[in-house]
Each structure stands twice: as C-alpha cells, then as structure tokens.
Write a protein that binds this DNA or RNA. Structure first.
Lengths: 353, 353
DNA sequence: TTGTAGGCGTTATCAC
DNA sequence: GTGATAACGCCTACAA
C-alpha cells in the first residue's frame, strides 16, 4: 500500500512553467490520498463503486488541495458539458425578462447552465448557430424562427433542441403557445361585446408570433362577417404603439371601436397616446387590447385586457422536456399552452361566440 | 508528399462503436486534405503561418466533412474557454433586461459567450460560485454582493472578474455607478424646488444599491437641515411601491411633499396607487421620484422624474474592460458612471443646492 | 512552412 | 473495489 509520502511521480514538484500557476489535478489528489488517479475520478462520479475508506481519504485530500474537477476535460471524455444554449430574440427578453430568470433557475436546479445567445433580429440565427456548434453544448432552447435547414442541421448533429414559444411541425420538440387560437378567442369575445370596427397593430415582419396573432384575429373577424380591420404596422415596442395610435386616428374619419395590439407594450403605447395626446378615455371612447400579460399590463394605470402567456409554466415545461431529451430520446413531443384571458378594464369582453 | 488516398492510420475507418456517431476531428480533415493534423490546427488559429495552398486544401476538406473545432478540447490545451460567467441578481434582470442583452451582444462581438447565473437573492452566491469553478470560464462579471472571502477566492484562482453596478474597494475591477452621489443630487434638487417633508421608500435589505441611494438622500437632507424623512420598506417591485404609498398615507396625518423611491418600479406603484386609490394628482398633491430610468419610467402616463442609469454604456465598458483583463492584466481599475437626472413631470426639481 | 511527439485533465475499459 | 492504460480532440514546442 502506498504511503502518504510517496513521491509525486506523475507531476513536476511545482510550477510547470506555463502561464499562471499549475492547476490542481486529480493526480495531485491521488498522490496525497495515496490512491490511484482513477480512484479519485470515481469518487467524483455520483454512482460509482468506492469503498467508504477510500472515499473519505480522497475527499479529505481534495479539500486540502482545494481540488475541483475540470469540466472541459470531463466534457471531452463524456461528451456532455452540462451546458445548454439558450437562443433568445432580444425583444423576447425585453418583453418577458422572466424567460431568462425562469429558464436559468430551472436548469440550475438540474445541474445545468445556460449559455445565452441573444439575437438583435430573428434573422441573425445563422451566425449564432455557427458559434453554437463549437461550444459543446448538450442541446439548445430556441426562441427564434428556425428554418427547415437549421432544424435539419440540429438533427444531423444529433443535438437535442426544443423550440420555445414558436410554431413547430410535428417532428420537433416544442413548448409553445397557441397564439392563433388565442387571437381567435379574443376577436370573438370582443365582437360579442359589441365591438364592430377593429383596428390592428401588427408586430415585426419576421416575428411568427405576431403574424399568428394577427392572422387569428383577422380570420375570426372575417368569419363573423365583420368589416375588414384597419391594420397598421408596429414593431412590438412602446413607441411603435404610440405611432400606431396616431396613424389610426389620422387614417380613419371615425375612430374604430377597438384597437387590438399584437403585444402589451404597444397596447400601452396606444393607451397612453390616446389618453394624453387625444384626450380619449379608454375604454369609453376606445377599447384597446394587448397580448402577453407582461408585468406592466397589470399596473393600475392600465389594467389591460390581454391574453397572458404562462411563461413560468412554459419555462418549467421546457426544462423538464429538456431533461427528458438528455435522459433518453423519446419521440418528439409538443407541449402546447393556452394563453389565459385577462379580463381587464381597457376593453369589454363578451362570452365566446 | 502524401496522396489523397493515404490510409487513415489514426482512425478506425468508420463508427468507433461509441454512443452516437463518431465526431469529425481534425485528423479526419488532415487525412482528406493530405496534410498533418497540426497543419489543420494551424489553419484554424487566427495568426498562424500556413501556406496559401495548404490553407485552401484544408478548408476545402473541412467544408466537405463539415468539421468544426471542438471547444472543449481546445479549452483543455489553451486554458481558455471563451466563456464568461455573468452573475446577475434576478431583480436586476427584471428591472434592467437591457443588461442581459447588451452584455451578451458586446461579448458576442468579441467572440465570447455568456454563461448566465441568476440569483434569487443576493445571498445565494456561494452555491453559484461553486458551480463556477468547475466550468472553465475565463472570468466573471458579477452584479451581486460579493464578500471579501469571495473576492479572495477569485484572486486565489487567478480568475479575472469585475463587479457591475456594485460598490467596490480599490483592489478590484469595477464598472459602477455613483448611486450615493446621485441620491444626494436628487435630494438637493428636490429641496431647492421647495420640497420639505420627505418620505422614502427603501429597497431590499440585501441590496447595496438601495442602501446607497437611501443613505445619500438621508444624509443630504440632514445637511440641509430638513426634518427627518419618513422611511417605509419596499423591495423594488411594483406591489411594494403600492403598499408603501398606502403606508405613507396611513402613517402621516398630512401627506409628505415628496415620496422618493429607491427605484422606478416602486415609484410607478406609488403613483398608480396615489392616483387610483386616493385620487391624488402627481405632482400637484404629491411629488414622486424614482431611480433607474427604466423603459417604463418614460411612458407618457408617468414621465417619471428619476435618475437614469446608463446601462448600455456600462455594459459596453464592462465588455471592454473584460477584454482588457483577458489581454493582459493591468492594475485594477474602476470605471465610474454617473446617473443622469431625468427632469420628468412627477416632481419639480430646482437647481442643485 | 511542415510534420512529429508530448501533453492538457478527465473518463472508460479491463484485468486484477 | 482498485489500478494501469487507452482514449477524448486539440495545441504547441521542436525538429526537419
């Protein structure tokens, strides 16, 4: 049995001359503990077979030397890094900061870390993915538009991924929200409350979420035989909501009954402008609705009538689904959530028609 | 000169039998290109010396095989992962989502990626740091309270780090904001506009930022000989601002002249409650001020008088400073920014006194 | 400029 | 249960 004073045959006695001080490796621990390097390795692997005595000697030595396993080296052998790429559109972070906090915390709970990629626009994906492949992430959560080619590349690399809050075909994992159905519901309930002339504020052209919301409202209105809505352009931020309100007022001789915005931020911009610049009362003179259920939509000044996305639940579902993907690939599944009607005070809602 | 049909001596001809398909390595590329592995390696290193012919052959082969260098392996040799840990308090993300987007994009521009750690409370740091040491991050940006022991551990591990928007001693790198001075300025300008009786809404007990802001206001008021302000507790969110307003009204027979909140979110909660529940006019019946310059503070409904943090500039500075730390350790430096007075309409400001 | 050989720190395999 | 030994995929002298 090796003694505690056995020479450190594997290692130079001190600094190896590289930049910085030499790191403490499992060999160092092995030498101090008087065991083999593989014994040390096993002690740091959850379900390994080590005798109690060995385990304690190793852990004692590890503590003395302040040894911490090197994740890069481990990743090289195991092909697992415990890193998950999270790809988010910048706008998504700004309107739902909770996505970031919920996802990272859910992952942390499972021993995983999030590497964050933010896109200035949904189109920037290509460069981001290139960076992704190098870092050995175990998978990705993508809240951005992913083309067929991108999806194919993920599967070709056998890299698990799931789409978050984005429409998906049946072949991919996804945690999503049925924006289209929600938009139809909203349109119907607004109509049944007596709103007839609709104005719509669209979102950024490359946002599929905005498009679905828009399409849902338009189609439902058409089915109900209501006049074609006035559609003005927005890009999801406050200022564009304010601009949209001005444009709506300028372009229509009579105000519409309701302005349906494809997100909350724009709805708030609309309301502020209607109230402040035009002296209108919401909802007496004009109804306004949003989409998202962001924190500010609930503030007393607005109490917005909107469709709330269950972000926390979705983040939890995403983390769970991802853990499942890691454990063993089941068939692609989709978990679909429904936005929740928030019956605020900026628009009257009738029963679903 | 080796021919293109040279046998792949380093590699088994096909799948090695491990789980998943074998990855494409630089040896594969070398074989196809008919060069040595090190030649391939050099081609992927920015400033290496490779002949044009070799470079093109290698790149052609890499493209055919769809080869991408393995960051984990590279990290093992170079001791650089191009990963930066970003440690943020959850509250910071919710009130300044821009921190996340700006930091990640600035890093991306420099070829680095952010590994995000979010803390539910500033005290959770210990567990987070333990996770940090394993992943071979090149350094960390910390927007959370860091004790002396933590700082010592960073330096002991020779891991570059910088504090973001947190007070720091002279021995550590930091990008910070002078909340104390800003708070003094705000107090002085409110006083010189005639406000005499102050109420203050504090922040979470473990937030150093909130404490500095509170201290700055209190001390300046004392210096100006004004009566001691009424301090009520808040925790930085909207609801606590609303509660604070109710408490202020309940605890004072006459309303104060101004309610100084230690952040914008609470100021907005105050204003909404004052207007909606108590029918007060801000600023006619009551002035309210915030701190942060968050997006919503500029909305028409509020147009908050506040002190804006130059988050984007600070993020840029942080990324730059971090790049500097990577390049070569200069002496610890601090870059101090000053919050900018936003002369909104929720409180009158006089000249600095 | 190019190739050879050794190392980075760990896990996995297989005898013992 | 334990210890040699071979990967893992790349970088970096060093020699040619």
């Amino acid at each position: 049995m090796p003694t505690l004073t056995a020479p450190a045959i594997h290692l130079p006695p001190d600094d190896s001359g590289r930049r910085g001080t030499r790191r403490v490796t499992s060999y160092d621990v092995a030498n101090v503990a008087g065991v083999s390097q593989s014994a040390v390795s096993r002690c740091f692997k959850p379900g390994a077979s080590v005798s109690k005595a060995t385990y304690q000697r190793v852990m004692q030595a590890a503590r003395e030397l302040d040894y911490i396993p090197n994740a890069a080296a481990r990743s090289l052998c195991t092909r697992r890094s415990n890193l998950v790429a999270v790809i988010l559109w910048e706008q998504a972070i700004l309107s739902h900061p909770g996505i970031v906090t919920e996802l990272t915390q859910q992952f942390a709970r499972r021993g995983m870390r999030a590497v964050l990629f933010t896109l200035a626009s949904e189109a920037d994906i290509d460069g981001t993915l290139a960076a992704l492949w190098q870092h050995q992430v175990d998978g990705a959560i993508v809240a951005a538009r992913l083309g067929e080619a991108h999806i194919a590349e993920f599967t070709r690399r056998a890299l698990p991924f799931l789409l978050f809050n984005r429409p998906a075909g049946h072949e991919v994992n996804a945690v999503a929200c049925d924006h289209y159905a929600a938009a139809r519901t909203l349109a119907a309930r607004l109509a049944s409350a007596g709103h007839k002339r609709f104005a719509l504020v669209s979102g950024p052209a490359d946002s599929s979420v905005a498009q679905e919301r828009l399409r849902g409202v338009c189609e439902r209105l058409a089915e109900l035989g209501l006049p074609r809505p006035l559609v003005v352009a927005g890009n999801f931020d406050y200022a564009s909501g304010a601009r949209a309100m001005r444009e709506i007022r300028a372009r229509s001789e009579a105000l519409p009954d309701v302005v349906v915005c494809t997100n909350d931020m724009m709805a708030i911009g609309c309301i502020d402008t209607a109230r402040t610049e035009f002296g209108l009362s919401v909802p007496c003179d004009l109804s306004v609705t949003g989409f998202d259920g962001s924190a500010s939509s609930g503030w007393l000044s607005y109490n917005l009538t909107t469709m709330r996305l269950p972000i926390a639940e979705m983040a939890l579902a995403a983390a769970e689904m991802f853990a499942g993907l890691m454990a063993g690939g089941a068939a692609p599944q989709q978990r679909l959530f429904s936005p929740v009607v928030v019956d605020g005070t900026t628009a009257r809602l009738g029963p679903a028609a």
